[in-house]
Amino acid sequence: GPSRVATEPAPIVQEQPGVKAGEWDDNANYREFQKYLATAGQVAYAPDITHRTFIVVRDADGRAMPQCRVTVTGASDAAFQLRTGASGRAIFFPRTATAVGAENNELLASTSCGGATGTARFRAEAEDQVVDIRLGTKRAQQGLPVIDVAFVLDTTGSMSEEIASVKRTIAQVTRNLAQAGVRVRIGMVEYKDHGDTFVTKGYPLTEDVGRFALDVSNVSAGGGGDVPEAVEEGMSYAVNNLNWSSDAVSHLAFLIGDAPPHAERLAAFPGVLREAQRKGITFHTIAASGMDQMGQAFWRRAAQYTGGTNMFVLRGGAGPQSTGAGDPISSCGGTQRNYASGNLDQLILGKVQREAAFLRADPMRIPGLLTDENARPCDKRTTLSPLVAAK
Rank of each mutant, 00 (worst) to 15 (best):
G1Q: 01
V5Y: 03
P9N: 05
Q14W: 09
E15G: 15
Q16V: 01
A21C: 01
A21F: 00
G22E: 01
D26Q: 13
R31Q: 14
R31C: 08
K35D: 12
K35N: 10
A40R: 12
Q42S: 09
V43W: 10
D61W: 10
M65L: 11
C68Q: 06
R69Q: 14
S76Y: 09
D77T: 14
A79L: 01
L82D: 02
S87N: 05
G88R: 05
F93N: 04
P94S: 03
E106Q: 15
L108I: 09
G115D: 13
T117S: 10
F122C: 07
A126P: 01
A126C: 11
A126Q: 13
D128L: 00
D132A: 14
R134C: 02
L135D: 11
G136T: 14
K138R: 13
Q141H: 10
L144H: 12
F151H: 12
V152D: 09
G157P: 01
G157Q: 01
K167C: 05
Q172R: 10
T174P: 00
R185W: 08
E190P: 03
Y191W: 15
Y191D: 01
T197Q: 10
T200Q: 01
Y203P: 02
D208Q: 06
D208E: 10
D215V: 00
S220W: 14
S220T: 15
A238E: 00
N241A: 12
L242F: 04
S246Q: 14
D247G: 02
A248K: 12
P260Y: 05
L266D: 12
A267W: 06
A267I: 08
A268G: 08
Q277Y: 02
R278I: 04
T282A: 03
H284C: 05
S289E: 03
S289V: 01
M291C: 04
M291T: 12
G295D: 07
R300H: 02
R300I: 04
G308W: 02
G317W: 01
G317Y: 02
A318C: 03
A325Q: 08
D327S: 13
G333Y: 02
G333W: 06
Y339V: 00
Q346S: 08
G350N: 06
V352A: 09
F358Y: 13
D362K: 08
R365N: 07
R365K: 09
I366N: 15
I366D: 10
L369V: 06
D379W: 13
R381V: 04
L384F: 00
L387D: 02
